[in-house]
Simulated assay, not measured.
Amino acid sequence: MEIVQLWQLFHQPLKQFVINRTGDPIAADDIVQDTFIKIHLNIKNLRDEEKIKPWVYQITRNAIIDYYRRERSFEELPFNLPSTEEEIEISTQLASCIKPMIEQLPLKYREALTITELQGYTQVELSMQLGIFLSGAKSRVQRGRLKLKELLLACCHVNKDLLGHIQDYEIKGPLQTESCTSSCNCNL
């Protein structure tokens, strides 16, 4: 199949597909253009023309993921980043607990937090990777964060200022609670 035929057949459906996932018609034009460049460069590698539609849509999904990765590099930093050396040290110490505590979560929340918080993917990319709706991905991340917070607070008292900066923490008494292992699985 020639690239002109592919353009006529897939241009409009792909553009709508991309708009539905990005909400940005201008970005959709760029993503679709990138998709057709990749199709043109790789069409010779397609062995079964009956599989052209899933092949084209897979290239498009990858182009959407690439778009979000590029966009993420321009995001502004959150307002409440730790600012003093003491705040940075305290945050770093508490951060050593996060990965082991994520490992204690049920699989669907562990998977969502690992992909978004530890691997740095967006919730949109999470939804595409897991094949679920964006609302489901957002829900898993939010519920996972709440469960993670419960685990952390079961092990430690965390004191924050009015802006949400962590001022101090203290490991709770005997570290044997229902939701907390004997060492909280962290390096405090």
Rank of each mutant, 00 (worst) to 15 (best):
K108M: 13
F133N: 15
R145C: 10
E117W: 05
Y109K: 05
L134Y: 15
L134T: 12
T122D: 14
R143Q: 00
Q142Y: 15
L151S: 05
K149C: 13
L152W: 10
K147E: 10
R110D: 00
L151D: 03
L130E: 05
L153H: 07
P100K: 06
I132C: 15
L146K: 15
Y109E: 11
I98K: 06
K99S: 01
A137M: 08
R140K: 15
L113T: 02
L105K: 08
Y121P: 02
G131I: 12
R145K: 15
K138H: 13
Q119Y: 05
I102C: 03
M101Y: 02
M128C: 08
Q119I: 02
A112Y: 04
A112L: 10
Q119R: 09
F133T: 12
V158Q: 05
E111C: 01
C155H: 04
A137E: 09
E150A: 04
I98D: 01
L113S: 03
V141L: 10
E125M: 12
L113P: 03
L107G: 10
E125W: 03
G120D: 09
Q123P: 09
G144I: 00
S127W: 01
I132T: 10
L153S: 00
I132R: 03
L148G: 05
E117M: 11
K147F: 11
L107K: 04
S139M: 14
T116W: 05
C155E: 12
L152M: 15
E111Q: 09
V158W: 06
